[in-house]
Design a protein around this nucleic acid. Structure first.
Lengths: 103, 103
DNA sequence: ATGATAGGCAAGTAACCACTTGCTTGTCGA
DNA sequence: TCGACAAGCAAGTGGTTACTTGCCTATCAT
């Protein structure tokens, strides 16, 4: 459906959200507060907790982030699977060899 | 640079622009008017010529569309190379298995 | 229980973006 | 040269969105 791609690309459109994805790529399973502090420490992003929370909601609706709750903690895990949708939609020019296979 | 990715993802954020990319995937080297008529015919998109022109400008600044001028015609060619940037930034889970999740 | 910690909900605001409208430039055929 | 066609430029507008502010809920340690 179009709606899925719509959420996906809209989620990727914001630089802060992309930075969050970077952060989760490096360390998956972070809590909201952990993401907040790392964004401000490592990326010098002065951003409120609520803003990050809203960004995470957008990423989750796009399927790029999955969450699991444990007690009062909520862990956020990265899921890059939806990105495959992009590569399948517009085929890349031949790079050097077949892709999707790590030798 | 961040600015390049910024233009790229912003360009992909709009559904009309993605449809234009689809159209150019199918037939590269179209003029502005050709793209307009095909958008309205094949995709039922009632959109003005200027709107398409602005979309093409965004796509071009993102490097997804390249143009060449011949007389009074300006042809638009698709270039999916910038999309490789996405796959490199967030590595996809292994495609061999049905569901990829690192244990 | 009480205070502290982790997170959620909702409304308001300022900036951004897609689209339109109107006019202008440049190129080709008659 | 004149008219028609392809495209460019610029300002204005309505809707979207990122962010803040303020308050509320839930879980845990003491």
């Amino acid at each position: 459906m179009v709606a899925v791609a719509d959420q996906l690309f809209k989620a990727l459109a914001d630089p802060t959200r992309r930075t969050i994805l970077d952060e989760l790529t490096e360390k998956s399973g972070q809590t909201l507060f952990e993401i907040c502090s790392r964004l401000s420490m490592r990326h010098r992003l002065g951003i409120s907790r609520q803003a990050v929370s809203q960004h995470l909601a957008v990423l989750e609706s796009a399927g790029l982030v999955e969450t699991r709750r444990e007690g009062r903690y909520k862990f956020h895990d990265l899921n890059t699977a939806p990105l495959r949708h992009i590569a399948e939609r517009w085929p890349l020019p031949d790079a050097s060899g077949p892709e999707g296979n790590t030798p």
